[in-house]
């Protein structure tokens, strides 16, 4: 299957400034499989330097500071990392912004 990954802000920068990335996965596949593939084959790092600080995306296999949406819905309201993917799914990745 093929899914489309849309990274935003500095996660996009870390993936070579690509607005969309088509990723091929063996079926069946989950968000966890997709993230493993992005880290292994596409250079999605565990942490990203931002200004003078570091933004941690992953702690081991746990997602830390990254919002993951599948087809416009948070995976946290679906089945988390075990959320199943289907052909044509769109995955948005962006860092949460908290301050005011």
């Amino acid at each position: 299957m093929k899914v489309t990954v849309k990274p935003f802000l500095f996660i996009r920068d870390a993936l070579g400034d690509q607005r969309e990335i088509e990723v091929k996965l063996d079926s069946p596949a989950t968000i966890s499989d997709l993230l493993t593939t992005l880290r292994r084959d596409y250079g999605l790092p565990d942490e990203i330097p931002v200004g003078r600080g570091v933004f941690k995306l992953f702690d081991g296999n746990e997602v830390r500071n990254m919002v993951v949406l599948k087809n416009a819905r948070s995976i946290k309201s679906l089945e988390g990392l075990e959320t199943k993917l289907e052909d044509g799914a769109e995955i948005a990745l962006f860092p949460p912004v908290v301050g005011g």
């Binding site: 802000l9 500071n65 919002v67 948070s74 860092p95």
Partner: peptide, 27 residues
């Protein structure tokens, strides 16, 4: 945050609410 920001307009009953987008609070 830094040089980054986000915004959305939430209309109850019509749009996704903040909890739909962020079911758990970011750190």
């Amino acid at each position: 945050n830094g040089l980054y920001g986000q915004a959305t307009t939430i209309i109850p009953g019509k749009t996704a609410c903040l909890k739909c987008i962020f079911p758990e609070p970011p750190p």
